[in-house]
Amino acid sequence: MKTLKDLEEIRKRTLDTINLRKDQSGTRIVVGMATCGIAAGARPVLLAIMEEVEKNDLSDVIVAQTGCIGMCKLEPIVEVYRPGEEKVTYVKMNPSKAKRVVNEHVMQGKVVQDYTIGAEE
């Protein structure tokens, strides 16, 4: 039998894996959180993004996690999906870069070219 606490744990754990499906009207920021992503420091990046989103009251922005994106050496990777725009992939992220992406790209629509995968290649 599950307790209230168990339920809450299942909720959190499962939500992390599936909230990238929810509500497509706003911007979605997806963080790669597979083993290598986490090893490369994806968790502080995720936390920084969530903090920034909360601080600025971006209620229609969804922060979601995803698994292996297949580019382990470029982790941590963050993808930004703004409605009606091409996806932008940011690589080798850290918390301060992530904050800049939220402020400039998500809030003002200006892609931070320096951090994109294009700049890396």
Binding site: R13, T14, D16, T17, I18, L20, R21, G32, M33, A34, Q65, T66, G67, C68, I69, G70
Partner: peptide, 10 residues
């Protein structure tokens, strides 16, 4: 549940 990078909903 495991983390997947992409979900195909059918």
């Amino acid at each position: 549940m495991k983390m997947y990078r992409s979900h195909i909903m059918i």
